[in-house]
């Protein structure tokens, strides 16, 4: 399943369910009541940021030309392919934090023990099984969506076409009214 996570900002109610689901998905036990007591504590890779009263869920954009991949001195960060995840190989990571410094979105963080950089991996295990990333399926209001670029642009085209069609229709009706 190829795709990226998109956010419909008007639908986000700031419930933080995405954060909880993300940390849980990246835990050892994958059982909430157990996961919260694991050491090191599982870390959420999506964060809901507050800006002037609005809530903005942010996670890795999985850039096609990712600065973190370019700057990593030990090839620990890999882009798996077009429209696929940028992932961190934890065994290669030395914790230099260059990736944190260059990320335009601030969505790379350090593990609680400080030894490795962490970020969204698009829930590879889930998407390989045809499931959506954990944050997307946890979102109760449908603010988070997992789509391919083509699906997204198709949806946007449909919406634009509908707008234009409605405008044209109302234009026709207006002309009719003016005639009568």
């Amino acid at each position: 399943m190829k795709g990226s996570i998109y956010v419909e900002l008007s639908k986000c109610l700031s419930c933080h369910s995405c954060e909880l689901a993300c940390a849980l998905e990246h835990s050892e036990s994958k059982e909430l009541a157990k996961a919260i007591y694991e050491d090191p504590a599982p870390v959420a890779r999506v964060r809901v940021e507050a800006v002037e009263g609005a809530a903005i869920p942010l996670q890795c954009r999985h850039c096609e030309d990712a600065p973190c991949v370019t700057i990593c001195p030990c090839e620990a960060i890999e882009k798996l392919g077009p429209e696929q995840a940028v992932i961190i190989h934890e065994d290669k990571c030395i914790g230099c934090k260059f990736c944190i410094a260059v990320c335009p979105f601030g969505v790379v963080s350090l593990r609680s023990d400080g030894k490795v950089a962490l970020k969204c991996d698009l829930c590879l295990g889930r998407t390989e099984e045809g499931l959506e990333p954990a944050c997307v399926s946890a979102c109760p209001s449908g603010a988070l969506r997992f789509l391919s670029a083509e699906e997204l642009s198709k949806q946007k085209r449909q919406a634009a076409a509908k707008r234009e069609y409605q405008a044209a229709q109302s234009g026709k009706e207006q002309a009719k009214e003016e005639q009568t």
Binding site: H16, E19, A23, A33, I36, A41, P42, V43, A44, S112
Partner: peptide
């Protein structure tokens, strides 16, 4: 987990069980 509180409207508040 019992970690949300809406008893007063300074909140709703919630505690992050993962500690972040």
């Amino acid at each position: 987990l019992g970690l949300c509180c809406k008893i007063c409207v300074m909140g709703p508040c919630r505690i992050d069980p993962f500690g972040q």
